[in-house]
């Protein structure tokens, strides 16, 4: 019942039928946070990992995303797309972590005092993280939100700014570059 209500309210509906539907049914913000928001947990993790690697920082960004979402849930716009909204928050939280990392990345020979602050990601698939990391910010975000989280280009454009066409281009440029880099690392010395 929860899944059905959200699917129907959130997607595949024009504005008129949506408002007519909402006149009779509660908005998403009236639905239980769990499971309506928490079932997107794996998607949110894919997004923060795409930006931060499979690190403790990604776990923190995931938790910060869900705490912020839980706090804001009752005030969420009733016809919101929950998944897109969560990805927007995850995007902001991941960027916050990147900014914090840069601030803490002091260029001295000293050993890092804060564990995790400038830790190298676990070697699960190091090539992918390294290659993602080398993409320009916009391409990395567009790849993460379209190819990793599965959001449509229009939704990605709303999150990162700019036009839908620009988001589509950044995403396909990013993928091409990523494939090229991964192929050359595998073949290279």
């Amino acid at each position: 019942m929860v899944a059905v209500a959200v699917a129907v309210v959130g997607e595949h509906m024009g504005p008129t039928s949506r408002s007519r539907f909402l006149a009779r049914w509660p908005g998403v913000n009236d639905l239980p946070f769990d499971p309506v928001a928490t079932r997107h947990g794996p998607t949110v993790m894919r997004v923060v990992r795409a930006v931060l690697g499979p690190t403790a920082d990604a776990d923190d960004a995931w938790a910060e995303t869900y705490l912020a979402a839980l706090r804001a849930w009752p005030d969420l716009c009733p016809d919101s797309n929950v998944e897109g909204w969560l990805v927007t928050i995850a995007h902001r939280k991941a960027i916050d972590v990147v900014r914090r990392r840069r601030r803490h990345a002091v260029p001295t020979g000293d050993a890092p005092e804060r564990p995790g602050a400038d830790r190298i990601p676990e070697p699960v698939d190091t090539h992918l993280w390294a290659a993602l990391d080398r993409l320009p910010d916009k391409q990395r975000q567009c790849v993460a939100y379209h190819h990793v989280a599965g959001l449509p280009h229009a939704e990605v454009a709303r999150i990162v700014g700019g036009s839908e066409a620009a988001a589509r281009k950044a995403s396909s440029d990013g993928i091409r570059r990523l494939r090229g880099e991964l192929a050359s690392t595998e073949e290279g010395p």
Partner: peptide, 28 residues
């Protein structure tokens, strides 16, 4: 390309438990 981004179900459960603890402490 992105298979490595997927979360182990046990990890997800652990994250959800920690979220529940933090959300409870924050009275959310």
């Amino acid at each position: 390309l992105f298979a490595g981004l997927d979360l182990d179900p046990a990890d997800l459960a652990r994250l959800q438990d920690r979220l529940a603890d933090r959300a409870t402490s924050a009275d959310l």
